[in-house]
């Protein structure tokens, strides 16, 4: 007994692919995705996706870097080993600025990279979709919509019929 991952359907051209995605969105499916070898403009909106959460990770990384830079310079210059340089104060918000600023950028970049991995659920070494020979053709010219079995609305027959109605061909059930 093999577990089902979901159903995939192919679409003949980009417009029908795009409009089919809109129909899947409007039908209320949540766990599904579109696959193509090239970006289709407006597809995130057609899929009803919210904006990426990555900027939040970037912002938190940046704030962390800024604070760490500030504290680091304060700890080194004013607390751990106070040193008079050019007759300037042990600590001021002015001279640590390059360090605060560099660390802001560095940790913001780390935050972006990490956030991208987290929100994309990476690293992911196995995806059941690759069990389908048809799906492998997505890296060529195939346009595929996959509806996953874990979706609350998923029903083998109804979903298959729905995909047929919106113009899908080569409909195939994929095993996990």
């Amino acid at each position: 007994m093999t577990e089902k991952y979901g159903i995939i359907a192919s679409f003949p051209d980009t417009p029908s692919f795009f409009h089919a995605a809109e129909k899947v969105r409007d039908a209320g499916y949540k766990n599904w995705d579109t696959y193509s070898s090239f970006p289709v403009h407006g597809m995130p909106e057609a899929q009803g996706q919210a904006r990426s959460k990555v900027p939040i990770f970037t912002f938190l990384g940046g704030i962390t870097g800024f604070t760490v830079g500030l504290l680091m310079v304060w700890w080194m210059n004013a607390y751990d080993y106070p040193l008079i340089v050019r007759g300037q104060p042990f600590f001021s918000p002015v001279f640590p600025f390059p360090i605060m600023y560099e660390l802001t950028i560095l940790l913001a970049a780390f935050g972006t990279l990490g956030g991208m991995f987290i929100t994309n659920l990476l690293p992911q070494h196995y995806n059941p979709l690759f069990n389908s020979d048809q799906f492998l053709e997505v890296s060529g010219d195939r346009l595929v919509i996959a509806i996953e079995a874990r979706d609350a609305q998923y029903d083998v027959d109804a979903t298959r019929q729905f995909l047929e109605e919106i113009g899908g061909t080569d409909i195939e059930e994929v095993t996990a």
Binding site: R86, G87, Q88, V94, F95, F97, P98
Partner: peptide, 12 residues
């Protein structure tokens, strides 16, 4: 603006 301030602050 900060660089201008910072260079002058550092050179003193």
């Amino acid at each position: 603006s900060f660089s201008q301030y910072f260079l002058i602050y550092s050179a003193n």
